[in-house]
Amino acid sequence: MVRVPLTPEQIAAGCRLGVFLRQARAGRDLESVAAEAGISPETLRKIEAGRISTPSFGTVVAICGALKLPVADAAEAWAARVDDSLAM
């Protein structure tokens, strides 16, 4: 099966999600958050760096649970768009 390349918007959304999660972790040890979420530290590191642009829903839910964040906040970060007035 061939995977369809991600669009620039999907890549940008993954980067926004990564920044949101990294900021939410705010000083908490990456390894301990990953362990609490049941994922590898490398997976969390890649998500935070935007190298995994489309993490699974279950992974995002687990990270949000470990960080005590509402999943809706992560979804908003992922879905946010740059203000159109700034793009001109």
Rank of each mutant, 00 (worst) to 15 (best):
I11F: 03
A26V: 06
T54P: 03
V2E: 15
M1I: 02
I63A: 07
A72Y: 02
E42W: 00
F20N: 10
A35W: 04
E48M: 12
V60L: 08
A13W: 04
L44S: 12
A80L: 05
P5L: 13
S40E: 07
A34K: 04
M88A: 15
V4D: 14
A37I: 00
L21H: 08
G50K: 14
T43K: 08
C64M: 06
L17N: 04
I47V: 14
P55A: 10
G50F: 14
L21N: 09
E31M: 07
V61R: 06
E36P: 00
S53K: 11
E36I: 02
G38A: 08
P41S: 03
D29H: 11
G27I: 07
P70E: 10
E48H: 12
T7W: 02
P8E: 07
G14A: 12
R3F: 02
F20W: 08
G38V: 08
G65K: 07
L86W: 10
A26F: 09
L30D: 00
A75Y: 05
W78C: 10
S56F: 04
R16F: 06
R81S: 09
A75M: 11
R3Y: 03
F57S: 12
V33Q: 06
Q23L: 14
I11Y: 02
R51A: 05
R51S: 00
I39G: 01
A75W: 08
C15V: 15
E76C: 11
A62Y: 06
P70Q: 11
A74I: 03
K46L: 09
V33D: 07
A49G: 14
I63W: 05
A66Y: 01
I11Q: 12
V60Q: 02
A79D: 07
R51I: 00
S32F: 02
E42Q: 11
E31R: 11
A37F: 01
G58D: 14
M88Y: 13
F20H: 13
T54W: 03
E36L: 13
R51V: 00
P41E: 02
I63T: 05
A37N: 02
R3G: 01
L21C: 04
A13G: 10
T7A: 04
S32W: 02
A49V: 03
E36K: 11
P70A: 11
D29G: 05
M88W: 13
I39F: 03
K68I: 04
L69W: 05
R28D: 02
I11E: 08
L69F: 04
V4I: 15
D73N: 13
E9H: 00
A72Q: 10
R28P: 00
A77V: 08
L67F: 07
P41D: 01
A13F: 06
S85Y: 02
R22N: 13
A13E: 14
G58L: 10
G58P: 03
T7M: 01
G14W: 12
R25S: 03
D73F: 09
